[in-house]
Each structure stands twice: as C-alpha cells, then as structure tokens.
C-alpha cells in the first residue's frame, strides 16, 4: 500500500510487508458503494454548511422545573394559602390551646398590675404588697386547671 519502502531496515521488512498486505485487504474490503454513500450524505453540507448544524443541533434543553412561570405562580399561591391558614383559621384542638391562652392572659394581667403598683410608688415600701400579689397569683385557683391538665399529660 505504501510506495516509500526503499529504505526499510531488514529487521522489519517482513513486518512492513505484512502490514501493507493487511492495509490493502482492509481497504479492498471497504463496503461497496462507500464513496457514493459518503458523497450523498455530505453533498448537502457542501451546498449549505448550515444544513448539518441544523440537523445535528442538540435538542433544546428542557426548561428546569423551577424556571417555569406556572410552577412559580402555583408555589406562591400555595405559600399564601398556607400562611393564611395559620393566621385565620382558629387553632385546633380548641380545648388545650384556649386553656393555655386564657391562663397566659391572666398571668400577664397580674404582672401588669404588680408592675403598675411597683412603679407608681417607691418600690421598697411596696415590696410587701408585691409579694402579697405574687402569692395571691401563685395560689390562685386558675392554676389548678393547668395543674390538672399537666397531670393528665404526664399520665399519658
């Protein structure tokens, strides 16, 4: 297959000859009509170089899920609805939450009155009254309901 073999060293002459023989066999064994097929499939590129670019252009990548406007809108609506549920729908189960809220309000009212007394006058002479108020608060029957509830919870 190669014509440039005049200077082939003796030690590789046989290998060169075998290789040339192999190469010729492989070239001769090329599928019939190879050149015609190559011409038919490539002539379009010669006439219009953009032909292949168009046909072989990769398909546009799918739009990422979160880039899709409808999905964004749906996500925003879902967020608003969930937030509204938290704000506007009364807490359930009503029993436990109402009970805690009522007692919290009572404690805050008591503290308010204690602080009002303390700051309206010299705090030291009024310490006794503050103490009395706190004792009254701590002994208040309103906590008995809380205690009962806590005991029930512990029992569970």
């Amino acid at each position: 297959m190669n014509t440039e073999s005049n200077h082939t060293p003796d030690d590789i002459r046989e290998t060169v000859s075998a290789l040339d023989h192999l190469a010729k066999r492989e070239a001769d064994a090329a599928p019939p009509g190879l050149e015609d097929r190559i011409f038919l499939r490539t002539a379009a590129s010669l006439r219009d170089p953009s032909a292949r670019a168009e046909s072989n252009a990769p398909a546009p990548a799918p739009i990422p899920l979160w880039n899709r406007t409808p999905f964004r809108l749906a996500a925003a609506i879902a967020l608003v609805v969930i937030a509204s549920l938290f704000f506007f729908i009364p807490n359930t189960p009503s029993g436990t939450t109402d009970f805690v809220n009522q007692n919290t309000d009572l404690i805050l009212e008591e503290l308010d009155s204690i602080l009002a007394v303390a700051y309206a006058t010299d705090p030291y002479p009024e310490l006794d009254s503050i103490d009395a108020e706190l004792s009254e608060l701590l002994n208040n029957d309103s906590f008995s309901e809380l205690d009962a509830w806590l005991e029930t919870e512990e029992a569970l």
């Binding site: 192999l22 492989e26 090329a30 190879l34 050149e35 190559i38 011409f39 490539t42 002539a43 010669l46």
Partner: peptide, 22 residues
Amino acid sequence: DDNAWRELIALYARRVYAAAKA
C-alpha cells in the same frame, strides 16, 4: 462544485476509512 467534491471523496474516502477501520 459537486464533481470536484466527488473527485476528492474518490481520492481519499477509502484511505480515511481504512485508517479508521484499522
């Protein structure tokens, strides 16, 4: 020129094929 393109293919396609096939 299609004819020139044919000639080029006739000259080189088989050699490119043989090198690739090897």
